[in-house]
Amino acid sequence: MTDVIFRILLVIGVLFNFFGCIGLIRLPDVYNRLQSATKCVTLGTCSILLSLAVKYGFSEIGLKALVAIPLLFFAATVAAHALVKGSYSFGVKLGEQSVIDEYKDHADQKKNAGQDEIPGKEDTR
């Protein structure tokens, strides 16, 4: 029985990681790509870790896999936030399909206040 659950979770994990990778290629801009990179890949990896915890039970490997899940959650969310904010303040524009951008006002204010210190920003645009 545990073997069946282990296999099912492993397959789900690999499938979601695969979906995340497809999203990384298909979606139009960096912000949408991060959506698929954080959500699908996090669930996929969590599912793989959970399958390990099911297979090995209360042992060294199983416990480590369980501990890794919350760590992965926090690491993925904080990394996604840092990447989104960083690419916005670096000047990466939203894709053409975007319908609304309420962050622009705040970002412009910050730029005008003289906090624009990223070197080489004009060249890369």
Partner: peptide, 22 residues
């Protein structure tokens, strides 16, 4: 969230309407 994003990624026309809201 995962099924939602997976659906949008796999759909041939990609039903997305992205934006930043407050």
């Amino acid at each position: 969230a995962n099924f939602d994003v997976a659906y949008r990624v796999l759909h041939p026309r990609m039903p997305i309407k992205p934006g930043i809201v407050k």
